[in-house]
Simulated assay, not measured.
Amino acid sequence: MPRSIERKYRAVTAFQRRLNAVMRRLPNHTLLETTGRTSGLPRRTPVGGRRVGDSFWLVSEFGERSQYVRNIVADPKVRVRIHGRWHTGTAHLMPDDDPVARLRTLPRFNSAAVRAIGAQLLTVRVDLDT
């Protein structure tokens, strides 16, 4: 990985670690809950995305380097809290999807942040259980 991307990744993750601690506590913020690949414990990550029918779409700013994406690879069963309500589902990495085009369909503020700080964008689709 090029040094500039590595520096960006380290800076962003240090900032997000602090921000996410606050965002997880907000009652209506969207959360993605994965199972920790090593610990087996639930891991909650604030995400920006949108529900479309029985799917929830989001874009990871650091692709397969993101911890929640690594957790998805180990166990794709997840939960998503949308508008304060939890939904179970199965997450799928979508490497063939155009993440920049996908961001245009997702909430504007989060999409702008992902484009600004992201280095290796990856689309994730969660098929929600009905």
Rank of each mutant, 00 (worst) to 15 (best):
A74Y: 09
G40K: 04
F62Q: 05
G89C: 02
V73M: 06
V73A: 07
R37E: 06
L32E: 05
R44I: 06
R102I: 14
M23I: 11
A116V: 03
L41M: 12
F15I: 07
R115I: 03
R25V: 00
L106H: 11
N71M: 01
V59Y: 04
A21V: 00
S39I: 06
G49I: 01
G49A: 04
D97T: 14
W86C: 08
L58K: 02
A112W: 15
A91Q: 10
S60V: 00
A116H: 13
A101I: 10
T38D: 12
E64Q: 12
L31C: 05
A74M: 08
P107Q: 08
L31K: 07
V69I: 13
H29W: 13
R18G: 12
A112D: 13
D96N: 08
E64C: 00
R70G: 07
P46W: 04
V100P: 14
D98L: 05
P27G: 04
G40S: 09
S111T: 11
V52N: 07
E64G: 14
R44V: 03
G84D: 14
M94V: 02
T90V: 14
S39C: 04
V47P: 00
A11F: 10
A113Q: 13
R108G: 09
N28K: 05
V22S: 02
R115V: 08
R24T: 02
V12N: 12
R65I: 03
R37H: 00
R44Y: 06
L103M: 12
T88G: 15
Y68H: 14
D97I: 13
R17L: 11
L19M: 13
Q67G: 13
R24G: 06
F15G: 12
W86V: 04
R81I: 04
W86T: 06
P42D: 09
S111D: 13
L106A: 13
T38S: 11
N20F: 11
H29G: 02
A101R: 12
D75F: 00
D75Q: 06
I72H: 07
A21M: 03
G89M: 01
T105H: 11
D97Q: 12
F56D: 01
R104V: 11
V80G: 02
A101S: 10
V78K: 01
N110W: 09
A101C: 06
L32P: 00
R25T: 03
S39F: 07
R108H: 10
R18K: 13
V59M: 00
